[in-house]
Structure formats: C-alpha cells, structure tokens
Design a protein around this nucleic acid. Structure first.
Lengths: 95, 95
DNA sequence: GTTTTTGGTTTATAATATAAACTAGTTTAT
DNA sequence: ATAAACTAGTTTATATTATAAACCAAAAAC
C-alpha cells in the first residue's frame, strides 16, 4: 500500500524547494537571480541558503562582480542525492 | 522556463499531505486508521483534520461505532481539486 | 469499584518561515 | 565633495506552523 516515508523537511519547504529546483536545472545561480525567480525577499533567501549550505546541499561562493559583492550557489552531490530521494518519496504521496 | 507557482500551504505539509493522500485513494477513512497509517500523534491529527475541514478540503462525520466515538473523514470536491492543482504545481518543481 | 484503555480535544511549546531593520559599500546627482 | 538613493546582501524580531504533552469523557477490563 501507500508508503508515507517522511519527507526531508529541509527540502519540503516552498522556498528551499524552489531554490534547489532551480539549482537542479541550472547547476549554478547568483543570489539576485534566485531572488528574481522566486519572488522572495532577500532576507528570506539569505536564511534559506544558509540552511541548505549548512546541510551541505549547496555550496556558496562569495566573490565580486566588478565592485559589488556576488553570491553564487551550486548544488552539491549530497544535495542532488537528497533531492532525488525527496522526489522519490514525494511521488508515493501524489501518484 | 520553470514555473514556480506557490504551493498551497495547506497541502504542502508533511502530515496534511499524508492524510489527503490517503483520503484520495480511500474515499473515506476513520481517525484511528489515519493515526495508524501516518504514525502521527492523535493530537496532531486532530489539529490537522480541523484545518482541512475548515478549508472545506474534507468532510468530518462524527458518529458511534457501538458505544465508542467514531470520526470519519472524506475528501470533498474542493479538496480533490485542490490536491490536483497542488500536484500539478509541484510537478514543475520536481520534474 | 477502581484501574486501564479508547478515542479523541485543547493547550502549550518548539520549530519554521517570513519580513523588517540594519550593514557595507557603490552609483548618481548636486 | 557630499548627500541621496541604490545594490547586495545579513541579522534579528515576529508571525505562523507543526508537534507533542496534558487533559477529558466514556467504555472496557480487572
């Protein structure tokens, strides 16, 4: 019957899922790009990136674009696997 | 490109999603059954059923099985549509 | 008849998401 | 040259949500 394996709480969040979803198809993205695409506030994004980074799901690189700070994000192997597992688990709920 | 339409927060919750997922395939379920299947505490389920019911996603019927109280849940048309919409939106995130 | 179990609800607490306020620096206009 | 406004974020406070603990009424077991 239905397998209701708990869903990774780190990914089962509107904004973090949106971010990781974008990173899955882009491989690398800038902070401002994520802000635009998700429509979330900068503060919210900052917090969620921190959580994903702390969990090792993404890697954050800080540099400069000209003179302005530039935050770039990239999904890690760990994040990729976590996402795939999440999707697999989720499908049991929605199919 | 990716359509990150916000996910219905009422459904995007581990436990409520599990409950609605079960109701989708069962059409009707008892409180104790949901408790068993989800592994959640009775209090948690009680609260989440209330929220789903208030939103009109499920219909709750209170009766008696012999002499014991019996709470039965059934998904409504509104709930069914909401679930379908949720799944549709979600697929943009995970596919 | 009192203890335990069943089937819940209510309420308190912990976790999470979100936005508001702030920082540090840059560009623009005066 | 300097004040005003903007960029790119971070930190912190608040609102929301999830969850569990405590509770209640009735029934069943002892």
């Amino acid at each position: 019957m239905k397998d209701l394996t708990p869903l990774d709480p780190l990914l089962h969040s509107q904004l973090r899922l949106a971010i990781v979803s974008l990173l899955m198809s882009l491989d690398s993205a800038e902070f401002t790009f994520l802000k635009e695409k998700t429509g979330a506030t900068a503060g919210n994004i900052s917090v969620q990136l921190d959580k994903l980074s702390t969990a090792g799901y993404i890697e954050i690189t800080k540099s400069f674009k000209g003179k302005k700070p530039l935050t770039t994000c990239k999904i890690t192997k760990v994040g990729l696997t976590a996402f795939e597992d999440y999707v697999k688990a989720l499908k049991n709920y929605i199919e």
